[in-house]
């Protein structure tokens, strides 16, 4: 059973079509790039997958569960349980320190407080010594790593990363992708990276290309794909 299974997904914003995905699926444990220029509907698709934005048409199955058949609270619970998100703006909660940001993610996912899990996640991204730091005390690179740690601390099945490398130089772009892939492997999660950044093409083989103006999406599968 694929982790993500999308059928007949269409969405328009202010009458302008932005998404047209006849069919797309991602097997559990595979990683996939959502490639497309700005305005091609990458963020809309990520939000639709996460149960945050209802698409105009279509069906989204996440781990076999029809996301938009669920009530709002059910979608919230599913999101907390299955998905870890790395936002484009990273956005850590400024009122909380680094460790508390991770505890918050676990709490919102309905997981018990686990100091070792939080410390371990931060340790894996090289921030084991910054548990008590405030977000404003972190460099941009450190924030990025905390955001990745926050996304994986709930041991999700799916990690959604929205433009994680767009503002980074080549070296940091490669480092962040490495970190995302590494962390996805550690927790056995599927990584879905939405990006317009061509530098990511050769790092993840499976791709869903979203052309501009809502033209039908094209799927490219890399080596080792079962289908």
């Amino acid at each position: 059973m694929p982790l993500i299974d999308v059928t007949g997904l269409r969405h328009a914003i202010a009458g302008r079509p932005v998404l047209d995905i006849p069919h797309w699926s991602v097997e559990s444990g595979r990683h996939c790039l959502l490639l497309g220029p700005s305005g091609s509907g990458k963020t809309t698709l990520i939000h639709a997958l996460a149960g945050l934005k209802r698409p105009d048409q279509g069906r989204i199955l996440l781990d076999g569960q029809a996301v938009w058949d669920l009530a709002a609270a059910g979608r919230d619970a599913l999101r907390g349980r299955l998905i870890g998100i790395v936002f484009q703006t990273l956005h850590l909660v400024p009122a909380l320190d680094v460790a508390q940001n991770l505890h918050l993610a676990r709490w919102l996912a309905g997981l018990p407080r686990d100091t070792r899990a939080v410390a371990g996640a931060l340790d894996r991204v090289g921030l084991g010594n910054r548990l008590g730091a405030r977000p404003e005390q972190l460099s941009q690179g450190e924030k990025q790593r905390v955001a990745i740690a926050r996304a994986v601390v709930t041991a999700p099945k799916l990690i959604l990363a929205d433009e994680p490398t767009s503002a980074l130089d080549d070296e940091n772009c490669a480092r962040v992708l490495d970190l995302l892939l590494e962390q996805a492997e550690v927790c056995g999660a599927t990584l879905l990276v939405a990006t317009h950044d061509g530098r990511t093409r050769d790092r993840i083989a499976d791709r869903l290309e979203l052309p501009k103006l809502g033209a039908p999406a094209r799927t490219t599968l890399g080596e080792g794909h079962a289908a």
């Binding site: 996460a50 709002a72 919230d76 999101r79 998100i85 936002f87 918050l104 919102l108 309905g110």
Partner: peptide, 8 residues
């Protein structure tokens, strides 16, 4: 962000 992390 909290909502996206699963907050109702």
């Amino acid at each position: 962000v909290m909502r996206a992390l699963g907050a109702t």
